[in-house]
Write a protein that binds this DNA or RNA. Structure first.
Length: 1148
RNA sequence: AGUCCUGUAGCUCAGUUGGUUAGAGCACUACACUGAUAAUGUAGGGGUCCGCAGUUCAAAUCUGCGCAGGACUACCA
């Protein structure tokens, strides 16, 4: 144990960061922080797995800081907090990264490169940035077990996923369905809604849109429409995707919408037509200015097209059932089609009020078509499978890829050939650029020529794009496996209400609304690198089997081998019940190995694996179970069990529909429980101008550089205290710098001050504690505040509000501890005897510093650990190896003295006012003054101020304080209505009462003070105002220099007597001498010999205050001399035009 | 398009149950202090509390309608 407190020559937080890291590593502090809590209650934390194939950014620092703060805090509260790191390893980002680096596309997988090789590449690639992640985690001081992480591609991890899938399957939550889904031809996979909801997916794009004319078939059903119509009658329908028009099989109308016929000409062909559209939208298609244009004068090509709205009106219901001719007769649908149907979602907000229906390319379309018995436009491919008109690469089917019989019976080859093989979006064809005509344009032009297009124009609309390939998404019919989350929707909402969300609005609003509009979770992904769906099916799909463990799979394979379906069992070496790594290394549950496994049904039919992978969000949402290899290695004899649910998780708000959702869904469906009880969802990190950070814009902040430059502590402190974590953070390096100077600099200075003098006096912290009641007022004050602080910080951390905790600590350190306590007590520390009072001061300051270190440790783990150790290794109190092993202090209510805190506020205010008065009169603080006077409002106030009298006097350098009780009326008073008291009583009369009070004279005030009431006449009514209804304060004391603020008024005697003048001069001397000492490089404790050259203006002062000067400057001798040797002496200015020489020499 | 969040000094943020002089830090200006000194103190300037309307004796605060920014949701053609 060293006897001296360590003194530093500067504060380098970046270096502290490095030093403390080394110690943690050497001492295994993190491990100890967990093991030392063994046997205590646990606090369960789940780490959301990042994907290690991307670089960590500054935004990762904020969510990881939040996690770390809570976990460290809970550890300090005595909980055992295990923290297992994890890696998200599957999924599209990895695959696309590999495709890019190998220079291949999805089409090439299985051809140019085997699936096995491809997946091996993914496995390798996904972990490429783990080094960087570990490094950042380490440097930023995020304590999490990186040595034993869970990895989602691990066989054991996958085995748990299979187990869970089987559980869901057995509960009937897993089903196969066909729906229209977002599909990315470029990525070759369907996209889940969460993927589609990645930021930036919806973008404004300008597309060619087309309002097409659908010719009404004249028959019995449509006869009523043909009333008064000569020639051709059309329905108008608008689409933003003209490429879906060949797949049209119906038109939808709103059942309540009113429609009208309009007689006009087709603007492109000039042919006379009658068109049907919603009444509300007539004006959108026909300019009222053209209403008078003559039909007779119209020539094809004229810009102004005449029109006439026919009076007859129809509702959507009337139109339902009317047939129309196929718009683009390339391919015949197999079944009923080309009829008007009703759709409840049809509105007249845009388009024509008649909606083109292509059931193969729209979810709503599919739904209403099915309901009306309308067939979709289906193609049969050469494998005999049903398809929409567009293949999976995003182009119209080539004839060669279709079934020959189908082509013969359903396809109009002459018309279709020209368009077969065309990509529906230019983005899908690498050979096409933006300049090339899109299919939309070509089809629109074709329709124009055929008198089938009524209007063609560019239109900007919002369209979803694939989050990885940036290319537009297609809505496409896909076979998929779903989890029936809708079945537990109500329960999920109920359970969600029990979760403590920070901020609350994310839980009730964003997450709650999402749950209200829940759809089934689409689990399928048609890719390669991911968790395979463990379902095997017979070819006809009638028998299926869901596999829930490796053991079960091995057993099933044995059956297949026995039946001769498989040659041998590829997983034959696997030993059931052996959970060693070696055993699990014998199998690989990924593709292509599982694809090669053929099982056999009870009836002896072959069963093949459903080729899909599962959504990666299932991987991460299942981490509570899979990280422990549930249930295989939990709930065993050794007592290990599932750690569930979490007490706490934290991630970015962008995870709301991702991880937060999948955790919650699985927790609800599998265990009928929440998966987490408390959650902080943090906002985004933006650049200092509020823009999103991106590599492209070059405004991304590198976390490594930032930590290297500033150290992690100020970075963490800044991120946490600058704004609430759920608000977006406008990241500004100047903010870190400010935190460093303001908070860490001040704290460091305070410690340095303490260490300097403690070492001089030999204070070690081992001294017997001075009883709190024996300590001076100011010590008890700061200790009171300290305990208030402990309370506040604890409450803030407990309610997951680290921002409040950090701000409270910072305020205490900079305002109360440094700026008031230390500043006012400097004299107690330097000079003078090593008395009880001095020890009390040291002990008080020591306690504050140590407590601040412990309170702040969760947020600033590095510097606080150093500070803590610098203090405790000397004192031996509470001397644990690290601050992170300590217990959080408990507030001692008995030490909290609110009255004391209040009167210290008075002291601060009075001092500040006196200093302001001095400034006004240009009276230096070094010049002592005789008296201040304070009018007394009540006894309590008097008692309070009396107690801090000395403090104030020394702070402002004044000799005495006089209390004025106003009996003689020397005070000028001010009176104000007390609105809070008057409001409820008088309501509407407030304005008049306020006016009455404001015009009260000094006599009136005296009266109300005497009688405690006064009568006011308001609107001929007499109102009795009591003393409680007003606030009275003194404002002025005639003849004195007065300052007044709120309730306080202070008067200052500015008369400088000869005596005061002399004392002032003495203090000037002390100041000059101290400066000389310092300039000469003397030690604080060095004794000196002083000579001062005589000067009329100062002689008396030096003689009268000789002892005072000597004691303050540690002068053994002090003499006035006739002349100081000029080389030895220094010329100093004592007062305006008063100069003399001083000689300072060290005593031998 | 809908939902949610945010909007207070040049910048970053506080602002309790509505109560009458709207605060702090940074930055700026001036002054002071000088044994915590790459600190510190005091004072000053700087505000349409996004706008409008309403409720109320009283609105930064509550309500409604807008505006701006952000996030999220969404294939309405």
């Amino acid at each position: 144990m060293s006897a001296k407190f360590k003194e530093y020559r500067g504060l380098d937080l970046s270096q502290v960061n490095k030093d403390v890291l080394k110690e943690w590593e050497a001492n295994q502090t993190f491990e100890k922080s967990v093991t030392s809590r063994k046997g205590n209650p646990t606090f369960v934390f789940y780490e959301g797995p990042p994907s290690a194939n991307g670089m960590p950014g500054i935004h990762h620092v904020i969510s990881r800081s939040l996690k770390d703060i809570v976990c460290r805090y809970k550890t300090q509260q005595g909980f055992e907090v295990n923290r297992k790191a994890g890696w998200d390893t599957h999924g599209l980002p990895v695959e696309l990264g590999v495709e890019k680096s190998l220079g291949i596309t999805k089409e090439d997988i299985g051809k140019k490169i085997s699936v096995a090789e491809y997946n091996a590449a993914c496995r390798k690639d996904v972990m490429k940035f783990t080094g960087k992640w570990k490094d950042l985690t380490h440097k930023m001081g995020y304590w999490v077990d990186m040595e034993n992480p869970y990895i989602t591609y691990d066989n054991k991890y996958i085995e748990t996923l299979w187990y869970l899938l089987k559980e869901l399957y057995n509960k009937g939550f897993l089903y196969k369905g066909f729906t229209i889904q977002p599909y990315s031809p470029a990525a070759g996979t369907g996209l889940s809604t969460h993927e589609l909801n990645q930021p930036g997916c919806y973008r404004d794009v300008k597309d060619t849109t087309c309002t097409a004319q659908f010719r009404v078939v004249k028959n019995e059903a449509s006869e009523f429409l043909y009333n008064d119509v000569e020639g051709e009658l059309f329905f108008l329908a608008w689409t933003t995707t003209p490429w879906t028009l060949p797949s049209n099989t119906a038109l939808a109308v709103g059942p309540q919408v009113t429609y009208q016929k309009v007689k006009t000409f087709n603007p492109y062909t000039g042919k006379p037509v009658v068109v049907v559209l919603a009444k509300n939208l007539v004006s959108a298609y026909f300019n009222a200015k053209n209403a008078d244009v003559s039909f007779d004068d119209y020539q094809p090509g004229d810009k102004k097209v005449p029109f006439e709205v026919m009076e007859e009106e129809f509702t959507g219901k009337d139109l339902a059932g009317v047939s129309y001719e196929q718009l683009i007769p390339w391919i015949k649908p197999d079944g009923d089609a080309f009829k008007v149907i009703v759709g409840d979602y049809v509105t007249t907000e845009d388009g024509t009020g008649i909606v083109h229906i292509a059931p193969t390319f729209g979810a709503d379309d599919d739904r209403v078509a099915k309901a009306a018995g309308i067939a979709p436009l289906i193609l049969i491919d050469k494998d005999g499978k049903q398809n929409p008109m567009v293949d999976k690469t995003g182009k119209y089917f080539l004839i060669k890829d279709l079934d020959a019989d189908f082509v013969k019976n359903f396809v109009n080859l002459d018309a279709y050939m020209e368009y077969a093989g065309r990509f529906v979006k230019n983005d899908y064809d690498e050979k096409l650029t933006e300049k090339d005509h899109t299919l939309d344009v070509d089809i629109s032009v074709m329709l124009k020529l055929e008198n089938k297009a009524f209007r063609v124009e560019k239109h900007t609309h919002n369209y979803p794009h694939c989050w990885r390939t940036d290319k537009p998404v297609l809505y496409y019919p896909l076979d998929s496996w779903f989890i029936k989350t809708t079945a537990v929707k109500e329960r999920m909402m109920e359970l969600n209400n029990t979760i403590n969300w920070k901020p609350e609005s994310t839980g009730t609003g964003r997450f709650g609304k999402w749950l209200e509009n829940l759809v089934d979770w689409n689990l399928s992904r048609s890719r390669y690198w991911g968790t395979p769906l463990p379902i095997w099916r017979t070819e006809d799909g009638k028998v299926e089997k869901c596999i829930g463990s490796v053991e079960e799979l091995v057993t099933e394979i044995e059956k297949a081998v026995a039946a001769g379906v498989m040659d041998k069992n590829p997983f034959g070496d696997f030993k059931a019940g052996d959970f060693s790594k070696e055993n699990y290394d014998k199998v690989d549950l990924h593709r292509p190995y599982v694809d090669d496994i053929i099982l056999i049904s009870e009836d002896g039919e072959k069963m093949f694996r459903e080729p899909d992978l599962i959504d990666v969000w299932f991987d991460s949402g299942a981490m509570p179970y899979a990280q422990m290899h549930y249930p295989f290695e939990t709930e065993k004899e050794d007592g290990s069990q599932l750690v569930f649910p979490a007490d706490f998780i934290a991630e970015g708000v962008d995870q709301t529909r991702g991880w937060f959702f999948t955790l919650h869904a699985l927790g609800t469906m599998l265990f009928d429980s929440v998966a987490f009880k408390n959650i902080i969802s943090n906002g985004l990190v933006l650049d200092k101008n509020g823009n999103k950070m991106s590599k492209r814009l070059g405004n991304a902040v590198d976390p490594f550089e930032t930590i290297e430059k500033f150290g992690s502590d100020p970075l963490r402190w800044y991120m946490i205290t600058n704004a609430q974590p759920w608000d977006n953070l406008k990241f500004d390096q100047n903010g870190i710098d400010e935190v460093k100077r303001k908070f860490f600099g001040t704290l460091y200075n305070t410690y340095s001050f303490f260490a300097l003098y403690a070492n001089v006096d030999g204070f070690t912290g081992q001294e017997e504690q001075v009883a709190i009641e024996e300590r001076p007022e100011i010590d008890r004050w700061v200790i009171s505040l300290l305990n208030t602080l402990i309370k506040e910080v604890t409450e803030s951390f407990e309610s997951y509000e680290p921002t409040k905790a950090g701000r409270a600590i910072q305020n205490f350190v900079t305002e109360n501890l440094s700026n008031w306590y230390v500043r006012l007590n400097r004299k107690r520390f330097w000079g003078g005897e090593y008395s009880k009072d001095k020890i009390s001061a040291y002990q008080t300051l020591y306690t504050c510093l140590e407590t601040v270190a412990i309170l702040s440790a969760p947020i600033a783990p590095f510097y606080m650990d150093q500070l803590y150790k610098d203090l405790t290794t000397v004192s031996g109190n509470n001397a644990l190896e690290s601050v992170h092993l300590t217990m959080f202090p408990k507030a001692d209510e008995s030490k909290i003295d609110k009255a004391l805190e209040q009167r210290m506020l008075y002291a601060q205010d009075i001092s500040s006012m006196v200093l302001a008065l001095r400034r006004k009169e240009s009276l230096k603080v070094r010049q002592p003054l005789q008296k201040i006077m304070i009018p007394i409002l009540d006894k309590e106030f008097h008692d309070q101020v009396e107690k801090i009298k000395d403090l104030v006097l020394s702070e402002v350098n004044v000799k005495e304080m006089e209390f004025l009780t106003d009996t003689k009326g020397v005070l000028v008073k001010k009176i104000k209505p007390n609105f809070k008291a008057l409001g409820p009583k008088y309501g509407k009369m407030m304005k008049q009462i306020a006016a009455f009070v404001n015009q009260m004279t000094q006599e009136d005030i005296a009266l109300i003070e005497k009688d405690s009431k006064i009568n006011a006449t308001i609107n001929d009514e007499t109102v009795e105002l009591s003393i409680e209804d007003v606030e009275i304060m003194s404002e002025d004391i005639p003849g004195w220099l007065v300052a007044s603020e709120g309730k306080l008024t202070v008067a200052l005697d500015i008369n400088v007597t000869e005596d005061l003048k002399q004392e002032g001069i003495a203090r000037e001397f002390i100041n000059r001498i101290q400066n000389l000492r310092k300039d000469s490089g003397f030690d604080v404790t060095d004794k000196i010999i002083l000579k001062i050259q005589k000067n009329e203006a100062i002689n008396d002062s030096v003689i009268n205050y000789k002892d005072y000067i000597a004691s303050q400057t540690l002068a053994e001798e002090l003499n006035l001399v006739d002349s100081c040797n000029e080389t030895e002496g220094k010329l100093v200015e004592i007062d305006t035009n008063v100069e003399t020489y001083i000689c300072v020499s060290k005593k031998a």
